[in-house]
């Protein structure tokens, strides 16, 4: 694992308050997918095969969600929300690129090899992320569930025994913290807004809730990983508490649907993923081996 390249921010203190500006821009200083790809290419990042499998799952979740959020842009209910959904989509895409770059290092593949040239059955995303956007309430329901799961997951993963997984999670957890806040705010507003918005919010939660169960299923891989990964079932109690509290504040019941049979982690997907991948992969596959 290499040290991420540092961007040095100029320190404005020496100039006193005359340096105050609302348009001073910097690239910031954080672990970037490019740093991980570089480490992979140089051979300094080499995950164990089972760690790579695990990273693939998290990467695919984030990639599929980013693709869904990308479909929203220019279609948001208000321009401010277009910008917000764009930020969340870019965060998820960043997480996907980091996890996939790291996973690929185990097999000599790049993030793009994995994103564009795997078949549907080789994807490891959970069904929740594959669900179509629906209306804004359905999207917010999906975001709320996703963030309520990803937040404790990344928080715990940031102390993984695998240093790269820990580093990716440490960056991601701060971003997902905001995703949880954003979707919580909208859930409260839609539930407590008008009759129509309340009906739609409840319907959106009904639509997405059956896919909660799959997120918390343990399997041989997560058992085998020990301290490198987070045992999915260990996050369920916190998820129930977080979501329960918000739903209670919103005056909505926790949907009582039976959980859907998942299978995404074994390559068994919803009907929706095929279309999503067809769209995502079409151009790259038209020009195999091309550089963009």
């Amino acid at each position: 694992m290499t040290t991420p390249q540092k961007h040095r921010n100029p320190t404005p203190f020496a100039q006193g308050d005359s340096a105050a500006s609302a348009t001073r821009i910097t690239p910031g200083n954080a672990l970037r997918p490019e740093d991980i790809a570089l480490a992979a290419a140089e051979g300094t990042a080499h995950p164990a095969p089972e760690v790579a499998e695990y990273a693939l799952r998290l990467g695919d979740d984030a990639l599929v969600l980013a693709q869904r959020l990308g479909q929203w842009i220019s279609r948001g209910p208000e321009l401010e929300e277009d910008v917000a959904l764009g930020n969340i989509g870019l965060d998820q895409l960043g997480h996907a690129r980091s996890f996939l770059s790291y996973a690929g290092a185990a097999w000599g593949k790049t993030e793009d090899d994995l994103a564009y040239f795997r078949r549907e059955s080789e994807f490891r995303s959970a069904h929740l992320f594959e669900q179509p956007n629906g209306d804004f309430a359905a999207t917010m329901a999906r975001q709320f569930i996703a963030a309520s799961w990803q937040y404790p997951l990344y928080r715990e993963l940031s102390s993984s025994s695998d240093p790269m997984l820990a580093a990716i999670a440490a960056k991601a957890v701060k971003e997902v913290d905001y995703h949880l806040d954003h979707s919580t705010q909208w859930l409260l507003r839609l539930a407590g807004g008008t009759d129509e918005s309340r009906r739609r919010m409840a319907a959106g939660l009904d639509l997405m809730w059956p896919f909660v169960g799959e997120l918390f299923e343990d399997d041989p891989l997560t058992a085998q990983l020990g301290d490198a990964a987070v045992v999915p079932s260990s996050l369920k109690a916190e998820f129930d508490r977080t979501t329960g509290a918000v739903l209670a504040e919103a005056g909505l019941a926790v949907p009582a649907h039976p959980m859907a049979t998942g299978g995404g982690r074994r390559g068994r997907h919803s009907e929706h993923l095929g279309y999503l991948l067809a769209e995502m992969q079409v151009l790259a596959r038209e020009f195999p081996g091309a550089s963009w």
């Binding site: 404005p12 308050d17 340096a19 105050a20 348009t23 208000e78 401010e80």
Partner: peptide, 25 residues
């Protein structure tokens, strides 16, 4: 506020339903 130690500076405006969302936007 672009950095600790500096004043808050007017950046622009936006629309939001309430203060909570205005901060997020």
């Amino acid at each position: 506020r672009s950095n600790r130690g500096l004043s808050h500076v007017h950046a622009g405006s936006l629309h939001a339903p309430d203060a909570t969302m205005a901060l997020r936007n």
